Amino acid sequence: MISAEHLSKRYGSHPAVDDVSFTCEPGTVTGFLGPNGAGKSTTMRMICGLTPPTAGRATVDDRAYRRLGNPGRRIGVLLDASAQHPGRTGREVLTLAALTMGVPRQQVDAGLERVGLNKTAAKRRVKAYSLGMRQRLGLAYALLGDPGILILDEPANGLDPEGIFWMRGLLRDFADRGGTVLLSSHLLREVEAVADKLVVIGGGRIVAQGDKAELLAASGTVVKALDMPALRAALERAGLTGTETADGGVVVQADAEVIGRAAAEARLVLLELRPADSGGLEQMFLTLTAGETVKEVVR
């Protein structure tokens, strides 16, 4: 399990991450989403012990990453697909990792095959790899120690559609066998297809988190009345707030029965009362992160 508790990171006067808390449980894929500069990578680096937090703490199976005796056997990390020695071959990269982690060398070829790097690719130097091939090598590195946890930052960058579909299946299978996955990606439809839970961050703070189905279902109810000013007054008396729609209706974060009762008590004629259309993860993401400005920070 991954646990982030009140994590904060400041660079001078800039709060890159501000009081972020969430957990990733075994058997689940958690999609970690946010616009560029929102604090995703900084949060993941704090979890992996690469960036010290200004406040708060992060643990992996109840221990700080730096206190794991052989972290590669507990947690697989892919934060930067280009962070491999360009002069080494793919097989050399994994062989050195196997020696470091105490993994049998015969698992190197199995690891390369698992991510779709054939014998020819294994003999090529990393500097000759495409971005997609580097992503596959980085994932092979993360999986080499047979960890129970994966932390992946944009692992699908550079992959073709077939590769993205393959990675989705691999991560889903990993979680279904009891593994824990924290996945950051801008490919929202792929995250929607594979994730069980979502954590959305904007401006360094969490703006939404929970089960994917519940978050995507929380679109509200559309209501429209013959007398819209009277409807707004009735909703206000009932303690309900709404957002105007382009066609003159109101989206209210309440179910149809609650809204209908409020309208009936005010003797209003309703022209429309229905669940709001869900635009899926993409629409939810755009709504939650609207207006966020990207601030580049020198690290």
Rank of each mutant, 00 (worst) to 15 (best):
R74F: 03
K123M: 03
G178M: 12
L68H: 12
G148A: 15
M44K: 06
S130I: 14
E162N: 15
G148P: 04
G31A: 07
A55Y: 03
A110H: 08
D277A: 10
Y129F: 15
N70E: 00
F285L: 05
P155Y: 02
A64V: 14
T51P: 06
V29L: 08
L50Q: 12
F22C: 12
L270D: 10
P35M: 10
P71V: 11
P104L: 15
A122Y: 11
L288Q: 05
A128M: 11
R124E: 05
L159Q: 12
R114A: 15
H85S: 09
A55E: 13
T180N: 01
R189K: 13
L188I: 07
G163I: 13
A218Y: 12
V252G: 10
K40N: 11
D176W: 09
N157G: 14
R134A: 08
L286I: 13
G178R: 03
H6T: 15
V29Q: 12
M101L: 03
M133S: 10
R124D: 07
P104W: 06
T51K: 08
G158R: 02
A266H: 05
I151G: 04
E236V: 10
M284G: 08
Q135K: 02
T28L: 10
A233S: 04
D62N: 00
Q106S: 10
R125F: 00
V207E: 04
S8W: 01
S130Y: 15
T120F: 13
P71N: 07
I47E: 01
A254H: 00
G56E: 02
E113D: 14
R299K: 05
A175T: 06
L271P: 01
T243H: 14
T59N: 01
V200N: 07
G27H: 04
G280Q: 08
A262T: 05
R299I: 08
E92F: 11
L268S: 02
G39Y: 03
G12T: 09
T221S: 13
P53I: 02
L78I: 06
G90H: 09
P53S: 04
G260T: 05
R124V: 05
C48E: 03
M46D: 01
A38L: 05
G202Y: 03
P71M: 07
V126S: 02
L96Q: 09
V191S: 01
V199Q: 10
R168L: 06
T287S: 11
A290E: 15
T245W: 01
R88E: 00
H186L: 03
E192H: 09
V252T: 01
L270E: 07
V181R: 13
G138W: 03
V223E: 15
A121S: 12
P275N: 14
E257D: 06
R10S: 13
